[in-house]
């Protein structure tokens, strides 16, 4: 019985060690952090039905890279990250995009993308919200507005927020609908 008591001590020590070695510094993927804005794409003539945008390319204005996942795809759902540093984020959405090799098929550096360019502007105010020790702070977006920049050949015909004073606080629901 006395030995049993003594045995408890190393057991507790091992338990303490194993708990202290548990990794707690990595933000779990399941934790909601900074959300992206979710936009559903509908048919303008039949506003109840989803309509794919074919050969879509999404590029952030002032960003050199194509948004990952939106390089010549057919899609009726857009998930666009917003800047945490500014109150405006702009995206160029290119419909029926194709690569124009500029007459030099061997030189990809002067290639550009043909297609119908439309630019959308998202304006918002930002709030920084504490999540946890591992995840730190996330940004949530309040009073988000989506504007379609006018050009001579808009293919995005209208937009609609799902709520008045639309905010983007998580990715559980759609935030905007656009119609084309």
């Amino acid at each position: 019985m006395k030995y049993l008591k003594i045995l408890i001590i190393p057991l507790i020590l091992i338990a303490i060690l194993s708990i202290s070695c548990e990794r707690d510094d990595i933000c779990p993927e399941s934790t909601p952090t900074t959300p992206s804005v979710i936009i559903d794409v509908f048919d303008f003539t039949n506003q109840e039905s989803r309509k794919n945008i074919f050969d879509l390319v999404v590029v952030g204005v002032d960003n050199d890279d194509i948004l990952p996942g939106y390089s010549f795809v057919s899609s009726n759902n857009l998930v666009l990250p917003l800047k945490s540093t500014e109150n405006t984020t702009q995206y160029t959405l290119i419909k029926e995009a194709s690569v124009n090799d500029n007459g030099t098929p061997d030189d990809p550096t002067d290639d550009f993308i043909d297609g119908n360019y439309d630019t959308i502007t998202l304006n918002y105010s930002r709030e920084n919200v504490y999540v946890s020790r591992a995840c730190g702070y996330k940004t949530i977006y309040k009073n988000v507005t989506l504007t379609i920049e006018e050009d001579n050949d808009n293919w995005i015909l209208s937009q609609q927020p799902l709520n008045p004073n639309q905010s983007v606080e998580d990715e559980s629901t759609t935030h905007f609908n656009i119609f084309h």
């Binding site: 952090t33 900074t34 960003n63 890279d65 990250p81 945490s84 920084n128 730190g136 940004t139």
Partner: peptide
Amino acid sequence: SFTIYTTDQYWSPQLTS
């Protein structure tokens, strides 16, 4: 100080306060 956490690094760097 803190830096905003986000899983999407398309617009990086994130805000640092």
